[in-house]
Design a protein around this nucleic acid. Structure first.
Lengths: 341, 341
DNA sequence: CTGAAAGCGCTTACAG
DNA sequence: CTGAAAGCGCTTACAG
């Protein structure tokens, strides 16, 4: 009578032992069969799997982590959750990792390297299976911790050619260059750049913009409006007003993010500035609502879902010990031209 | 020489044993001291804490979970991450739970009870410390699983008076009633309701709206436009156009969510419909950008950060075994009147 | 290809 | 108030 056998077990859960007994093998063999370790007779694998399914066995992650010295958690560190960009990345990561038995852990750094370092310290103590980090801008201590931990790590959103580093993203610089070039191609010559937050990726886009305008011989540092404040529609509107007031000859604006650009577009409506006739406007990221603006916003569609997906897959390959993992995955970007330019 | 003592430990981490030895107590006492269990001499607690700090001891969550049969994870199940509402809730939950050593696990149900049930099954197998669920709309199986698991659970966003149920939120019905009443107070009589997604909370707001309009004797079912599609600015614009075309006598619209309302406002600009002169517009949630619209959007500010915070605190109290936990916490809502009404 | 032994690092009763 | 013993449920070497 199984019920009497189970009487004293506090947890009441089905264990590997019971599965093994039911399948007529040792627990080790059952463990190997269930984990898909090769080198177990096909017939035994089958028997174990049937027994596990019949008993409704669910492996205990804690026991597994303790015995193997390796958890199933995968901390995913992003700067912000209030930017839809990262939410999309995270959703994609979840979708890839969960079915493989890994547990994404969301960490928010608020663009603060110190905060990231602390989060990292805490997560690393839990022996995570892998790590998904945003970009390359972190403290030296954080870098060290990741390196010495030996835990597989994939970097998201930016690219590097550094050896041994796995990254998935696109060239922020080139995307900035491309959108600036588009505005020049439209015949604009006084092309401004409005940015907020000023995180590393924003600054890379700024570099692309500068590079492009210099190549065309029309760069003017006075057309850059950089604010360290967090990005928002409200701020975009304010900066737009500032710029139009102080630089009335501006004929195009590249906003480093769509929320700023949307705010700018609404400010233009309010002020009666004709877009794109008087000023062409472009944003970045193709966030929700940009296609609904008046006029619809020209922008760069960034592959954030793809970044999450490919990042997770790269990590999975690393965890599998796959020798053929691609170190750097460039997912590109897409210029989306709409009515605002 | 400690280095030779440590030679064979695979993990290389500082253990409770070492802390205990260094403090001159038994591991059990060290464990109790570190967990703040009462009944340990103050002097010993001090010694243990100093030793732990000196050695840089970090408890192993896996070992802890295995021994105590109780993990530190707290699954937080929300319908969607693409609605800023839930992102705010999640951020607040993180902020509360993390410092207490609990690990929030984000699960996305996509408004699908089946998906929620599956997620729940997986999470429950991990013996989470607690559970944070959105609303009360779930499968019977899910309900059973939660009940029989005995794991403390707090429900977010909605309220109930059901005994033994802990919930934190506000009355969606009353909020719907209040915004409808506001439009009536503005002298409107043909007040439409536009909704998408049609999740339980949206339907509760619909009830509030109906209730209010019936009380005023001006309810007209033909002024309800309900779409099961996911909420978005684009859809809001489309539904606005539909409504204005088919019901030209409408003089006010209550959109069930701000993204729809923002889309509606932009459609009004496009179509040359004067807001609020011809049609007053109100939204719900006070999402980012609503204050930047043209005109700024009247809406209901919902206490989502407070919901996450209070929800997490309630759970913490439950985990502590606090006998004075409040079962139902009504956080209210705030009418935000702006230019659109 | 399979298994017996040992152990991962902690906490839960149970004593005293 | 403190501790020795046992065990949580797995997996890692090590044999054979």
């Amino acid at each position: 009578m199984p019920s009497s056998e189970r009487r004293r077990r506090p947890s009441g859960r089905i264990t590997l032992q019971e599965v093994a007994r039911s399948a007529g093998v040792s627990p080790i063999t059952a463990s190997r069969a269930l984990r898909g370790e090769r080198g177990v007779a096909a017939e035994l694998v089958e028997r174990v799997k049937v027994a596990a399914a019949e008993l409704g066995y669910v492996p205990d992650p804690a026991a597994r982590a303790l015995a193997s010295q390796r958890g199933t958690q995968v901390p995913v560190l992003v700067p912000l959750l209030s930017n839809a960009l990262f939410v999309d990345v995270i959703e994609a990561v979840h979708r890839e990792l969960l079915p493989h038995g890994y547990q994404p852990l969301i960490g928010v750094t608020h663009y603060d390297p110190m905060e990231e370092e602390q989060l990292l310290r805490g997560y690393l103590a839990q022996r995570p299976a892998g790590l998904l980090l945003t970009g390359f801008d972190r403290t030296e201590a954080a870098r060290q911790m990741v390196a010495t931990s030996g835990i597989p790590c994939v970097y998201l959103m930016e690219l590097t050619a550094a050896p041994g580093v796995h990254c998935v993203g696109f060239s922020q610089h080139d995307a900035g260059y491309a959108i600036a070039q588009h505005l020049l191609d439209r015949g604009r010559r006084r092309v401004a750049f409005i940015a907020a937050q000023l995180d590393p990726r924003t600054l890379q886009r700024a570099e692309g913009y500068r590079h492009c305008l210099r190549d065309a011989g029309v760069y003017d540092a006075r057309l850059e409006l950089l604010s360290p404040q967090p990005s928002s529609m409200r701020l975009g509107g304010e900066l737009f007003e500032d710029l139009v007031r102080t630089r009335p000859d501006v004929d195009a604006i590249f906003f480093c993010n769509d929320d700023l650009a949307q705010g700018g577009l609404l400010a233009a409506l309010r002020l009666g500035v004709a877009v794109p006739q008087q000023i062409a406007v472009a944003g970045f990221n193709d966030l929700s609502g940009s296609d609904q603006m008046l006029p619809p916003l020209t922008t760069v569609r960034t592959p954030r879902r793809a970044v999450g997906e490919a990042g997770a897959r790269t990590l999975l390959a690393l965890l599998r010990g796959d020798p053929a993992v691609q170190a750097s995955t460039d997912l590109g970007f897409e210029l989306v031209v709409r009515g605002s330019s």
